[in-house]
Design a protein around this nucleic acid. Structure first.
Lengths: 326, 326
DNA sequence: CTGTTAGCGCGTTCAC
DNA sequence: GTGAACGCGCTAACAG
């Protein structure tokens, strides 16, 4: 069944295609009589405007490119959910590209987005990414871009991230309240700003107390986290507190703790909350909401696209977090 | 920076736009000299064809619509990963729509895909979906559609699913080998064909032995799974084997088992393998690979789009599974 | 208020 | 071999 066009309607209504176009878009210049007539015919023909033609004419694609380092994480799906939630309401399409933690693939994905004519790009960087030189391609084409979650130090694009300092401090305070004295902290890949920021804040908070951070660990995946944590626990029998900065890391840390039957540690993690309830006993965590983060990031991007953004100041947008204990 | 068009190149090269078009698409009719000259200029201008214009002209969008019931599950992200892996290599874009287990939203998503001019649709149904009447919209427009994973009984569209019968039987055999006699089986939502098919196969396999299925449970989410499993365990002290048909269900089942300290049950699950290793001790599972399933489904859909599909027989495509024990 | 005209950027006939 | 002309479906400027 072929699709009806604006022209088909015009013929049936005995009017010019352009009149049909105006009527359907509720232009004030067209008479009520003609308007209802055209609307009626359009309904009968099950007319639906051809997006491609509209896009070509109006020079926008109603397409948002989303680039993520990995999709099988706990966090990313929630973010996608939040983004698509907003986009569906605005008639935008979401194109999902995964970089698999590769800078090369990430660079390629930027090009794909631009060449596909995306109206805007949302990116969370791979752990290989150290600067934003590969984002210039989008910047040159004047395609709005917003970074979220996994960002790198820069001052060209807006960033939507959780309040890393506050989150890490809250976790530190939790452990201090539980009277922990000898603490291990496990972070993600060293390149990521979320790692260094959380480390800095956590370390400072602990320093203010009588407790000490016995060891700062970095791990790019849960296996590495498990091995390093296990080694640290074995060589420091007096560890009584562990901080895991993400779900990825938490998985490994938890595995390590399970293997040390003698250990009696307090554990706290930064998490989006999907994973912790699966463990028994449940693990307390500082919740950082991926769904909300996705929504905030896409709303910001859309404000760039619609030109409704108030100021032009590039800045970091912080997301609040919440401590969940049982 | 504005994008260069075929026209810009033509002016610089002193040739007609149509010649540029031919040269860039390596048409045999254009002389080698002109061809290299044009290619050179195109490179300098960083020319990239305008997808929208090409799509309008060629009447296809290079867009695939993916509709899933939920995205925060364990399984879906792997599937998306597999799909986008294939699509990126073929220059297709992936549009992700989530139905949030709502038939109404699913119907709406079908329309969004069609109206956006998707070249093809991949769908995993919500647990409210009982038939395919809402898919007719796509069928009428002759848009290829392939169902995967969560399907409903029908004979219009191809389905890509795991070999439910084999999977359930393998799980049954695992429990029988462990000398289980009194077994609980926990399935997902009753409407889903994967639930009924797995139940049928599992029950039949157990029936052939001296063991019995004490109880068949159905649960739409992990909370419900946990409550029902817990109740069943409490009222049947002699349970020595549990089968969880999915990660969703497994989460609840595991929670229930943890709460019964006296229980000494064998546990087996059908899972894509992301969740089981997180538990300690690790849970054996029948692996059904979401990544591979995604790839298989999209390849099938692409063969419809390219018209390279051999036969026109609608059928179920089964995916093999693998038992993972420790 | 409505019709005419002119493109958006590209691919493809048809001439020459 | 290459140019000219047309049209995909739609919107927008200009006329009347």
């Amino acid at each position: 069944m072929k699709r009806a066009t604006i022209k088909d309607i015009g013929i049936l209504a005995g009017v010019n295609p352009s009149t049909v176009s105006r009527a359907l878009r509720n232009h004030p210049d067209v008479s009520a009589a003609v308007k209802t007539k055209i609307t009626e015919i359009a309904k009968q023909l099950k007319y639906v405007p051809n997006d491609t033609a509209v896009n070509l004419r109006t020079r926008n694609s109603k397409l948002i490119g989303l680039i993520v380092p990995s999709i099988t994480m706990f966090f990313t799906p929630s973010v996608i959910d939040g983004i698509s939630d907003v986009l569906q309401k605005n008639g935008f399409k979401l194109m999902v590209l995964c970089s698999h933690e590769s800078l090369e693939q990430e660079t390629e994905n930027i090009k794909i987005c631009c060449n596909a004519g995306a109206d805007g790009i949302l990116i969370s960087c791979s752990n290989q990414t150290k600067n934003i030189s590969h984002l210039e391609y989008a910047h040159d084409l004047e395609i709005p871009l917003v970074m979220f979650d996994k960002t790198v130090s820069q001052s060209t694009f807006d960033e939507v991230i959780i309040d890393n300092k506050d989150a890490a401090e809250q976790c530190a305070n939790y452990l201090l309240q539980r009277k922990c004295k000898n603490i291990i902290a496990v972070y993600g890949n060293k390149n990521m700003s979320i790692s260094s920021e959380r480390e800095k804040a956590f370390t400072n908070a602990i320093k203010k107390s009588k407790a000490t951070v016995v060891k700062n660990l970095n791990a790019s995946d849960s296996i590495e986290a498990q091995n390093k944590t296990l080694a640290a626990l074995l060589s420091n029998a007096n560890i009584d507190g562990v901080f895991a900065m993400s779900d990825e890391v938490l998985t490994g840390v938890h595995g390590a703790l399970q293997r040390i039957t003698t250990s009696n540690c307090s554990l706290i993690a930064i998490s989006d909350g999907k994973l912790p309830p699966f463990y028994f006993p449940q693990i307390p965590y500082l919740k950082h909401d991926g769904f909300a983060l996705g929504q905030k990031a896409i709303n910001l991007l859309l404000s760039y696209i619609d030109n409704t953004k108030e100021t032009n100041n590039v800045k970091k947008h912080l997301l609040e977090t919440e401590m969940i204990t049982y």
